[in-house]
Design a protein around this nucleic acid. Structure first.
Lengths: 169, 169
DNA sequence: CACTTCTTTCAGAAATTTGTGAAGTTAAGG
DNA sequence: CCTTAACTTCACAAATTTCTGAAAGAAGTG
C-alpha cells in the first residue's frame, strides 16, 4: 500500500484513476498536461491543490504545472486562489463552474456562426450550397439557446439530487 | 475572376470560405485535413465531391484525401458512396446526419462515465473526492439524456423552417 | 532592503503528428 | 485475363507541439 503520511488515501489508487481519466480527456481532444492537472484536482479531497502537490503527484516540472494551469484558468475549468500570507497558490475545481466551461463553447459557436454567415453571403443565399450553410447556421443558433436552457435544468436537477451545496461547494 | 469552366461559381470565393471555416474547426480541436475536406463538401453545391475534386480544390495528395475521408466516415460526418459503373467514389455530407455526429459524442460520454464510475468506487463513494466524482458522473448522465431530446426538438424545428427535405436532403 | 519561497518565462531537446511520394490493392472494361 | 483507373497503405521527411531545466520575476518576511 502506498499511503502518503496521514492522508488516509492510497496514492497509487488515486494516481491510477487520475491517469486513466486524464487519458480519456486526452482522447477526446484535450491536451495532455491540462487534462492530467484537471483530473488530479477533480479527485483531490479538498478540490484544490498547490503547484508543488500537483508537480509531485504527476511527476512534472513547475513549468509544466504553470502552463497547464494557465490554460485551465483561461478556459474557466479551474480557478486560482492565493493562500493568505504565503506566496503559494491553490488551484481549484469550482464545484459547478466547470460544467459551464464544458458546455459554454459559446465563443467557439459564435465564431462558427460568423464564418457561416460570411459563407452564406459569399456563396449566395439562393444557391444549394448557400442553403446548406444557412441550415447549418440555424442549427448552431438553435444549439446556443438549447445549451443555455439545459444548464438551467441541470442546476435544478443538481440541487434536487445533491442539495444546494454539492461536493465542496 | 477565377471561374472554373461552367460551374458558375467563383473558385476563389469558394476557396476563401472553405479555408476560413476549416480554420475555425481546426481551432476548435479538429485536425486540419478532415476539417478542410469537410468544409469543402459542406460548401459544394451538390453536397458531394470526388477524391480528385477534393484534391484539386485543396491542393493535397490523394493520400491526404484518403486519410481525411477515413476519419470523417468513421465519425459519421461524411458518407461514402460508389458512383455506379465506375471506380470513382463520392463523399457526401448527408443533410442532417452530421448534426448528430457532432452532438453524439455518445461513445466519448460513455467512456467518461465508465472512468468516473471506476473512480467513485476506488476513491470511495463516501469521501469528498468520491462525492465530487459522483456529481460529475450525474452531470454526464443528465447530458446524455438532454442531447437526445434536443436533437428531437431540432428535427421538428428544422422541418418547420426548411420543410421536410432541407438542402440536398 | 536583503532573503527566501514560489511562480512564470524562455530557449531548446524530445516526442508526436502530419502530409507526401511510392508501391500495393481492388475492381471496371475490354 | 490483361489493362487501367481509382483508392489505400506505408515509410519517411518535415513541421509542429510538448515538456524541461535554467534563469528571471514577484511577493511575503525579518
Amino acid at each position: 500500500m502506498t499511503e502518503s503520511a496521514g492522508t488516509g488515501r492510497d496514492a497509487e489508487v488515486v494516481s491510477r484513476f487520475v491517469e486513466s481519466f486524464a487519458a480519456q480527456l486526452v482522447e477526446a481532444g484535450m491536451t495532455r498536461m491540462p487534462a492530467r492537472v484537471f483530473a488530479a484536482l477533480l479527485s483531490s479531497d479538498a478540490g484544490s491543490m498547490t503547484s508543488a502537490e500537483l508537480g509531485e503527484q504527476l511527476r512534472i516540472s513547475p513549468a509544466a504545472v504553470s502552463g497547464a494551469v494557465r490554460y485551465l484558468a483561461q478556459t474557466h475549468m479551474v480557478s486560482r486562489e492565493r493562500e493568505p500570507g504565503s506566496r503559494r497558490e491553490r488551484y481549484r475545481v469550482h464545484g459547478d463552474q466547470w460544467y459551464e466551461a464544458l458546455t459554454n463553447r459559446d465563443a467557439v459557436l459564435k465564431r462558427w456562426e460568423a464564418a457561416l454567415r460570411e459563407g452564406v453571403t459569399s456563396l449566395g443565399a439562393d444557391t444549394p450550397a448557400g442553403r446548406r450553410l444557412s441550415e447549418t447556421l440555424a442549427f448552431f443558433e438553435f444549439l446556443e439557446g438549447e445549451l443555455l436552457a439545459m444548464m438551467e435544468r441541470w442546476r435544478v436537477h443538481r440541487e434536487k439530487t445533491f442539495g444546494p451545496e454539492g461536493p465542496q461547494g
